[in-house]
Simulated assay, not measured.
Amino acid sequence: MTQEGLKCPTVFTVDSYHTAPPPLPPRPGRKRHIGTTQVLLFLLVSVALSGMVIEAWLIYRLYHPSPPTEIALPSAAKLINEASALRPLPTKWPRLVEAPSKPLAHLTDGLDATAPAKDIMAWSEIADPLLYKVSYKDGSLIFHENGYYFIYSKVTFNVDILVRHSIELKTKYYLGKKTITLLKSMQTTVSRPSNSFLAGVFHFYKDDAIFVKVGDTSHVAHHDPTENVFGAYMI
């Protein structure tokens, strides 16, 4: 039996949420390291993609070629002139196609030969003279290059008296002398015609000049151009 006026007991409510421990905070994420395999894989993929791009460009160029560029070809005359400029040209070389490898000269007698003096031989300029890196002027051969040369001369005489024949040098390197005798012949002919031949080796400088001197050009025979010759060539 309950007593009146007895108070009911106090009811307490319990919050079950607070009975459990609080949740833990989220754990921080770890950094992922890129391995060597992944780097190699990336490089291989990049190379493969580059190859595909290049292959696509080559295929495009194959089926879409660019228009040809017009190139002006040089004329045959221009090519010949350029080829000739690469090799030395002869001063006068009318008979042979190719010039010699060294300077030379060979002169003969002729009707057009006019002696510059009574005792100096003249030579024909129209009888196919051979001149390469050696020029001819007023009876003299003028050298264009320094070097040793073999020189020669033959003169035919039509008299039976004492005749003189020599090869003379004009050079600026010997002061006080107008000419220098290089080779000389003096002889008394006993028959008509007779000839004198001179030859030797000498060193010459550029612009040196040599000429043939005789006692009197009126004593020289002029029957055939080959009777009188004058020449030189580098050795």
Rank of each mutant, 00 (worst) to 15 (best):
M1H: 12
Q3K: 06
Q3R: 08
E4C: 03
L6T: 13
C8W: 03
T10Q: 12
T13E: 14
T13M: 11
R27F: 13
G29T: 08
I34K: 02
T36H: 02
Q38M: 00
Q38P: 03
L40W: 07
L49T: 10
G51D: 06
M52E: 12
M52D: 07
W57M: 09
L58C: 13
I59K: 10
Y60P: 05
L62Q: 13
Y63M: 06
Y63L: 05
P65I: 03
P65W: 07
P65T: 02
S66A: 13
S66F: 11
S66I: 06
P67L: 10
T69L: 15
T69W: 09
P74S: 14
A77C: 11
E82W: 08
A85F: 12
A85E: 10
L89N: 09
P90T: 06
W93L: 02
P94L: 13
R95S: 15
L96E: 15
V97Y: 15
V97L: 15
T108W: 01
A113C: 03
T114F: 03
A115R: 06
A117G: 09
S124I: 00
E125R: 11
K133N: 04
S135M: 01
S135K: 04
Y136Q: 04
G139F: 00
L141D: 00
I142A: 03
E145D: 02
N146T: 03
N146P: 02
Y148D: 00
Y149M: 00
F150W: 05
Y152K: 01
V155C: 06
V159H: 08
L169S: 02
Y174I: 13
T181V: 14
T181M: 14
L182Y: 09
K184C: 11
M186A: 13
Q187T: 14
T189G: 14
V190H: 15
P193N: 12
S196R: 12
F197H: 15
A199R: 10
G200T: 01
F202C: 05
H203E: 10
Y205P: 06
A209Y: 07
A209E: 12
A209N: 08
V214A: 05
H222G: 05
P225K: 06
E227H: 10
G231Y: 04
A232D: 03
Y233Q: 01
M234I: 02
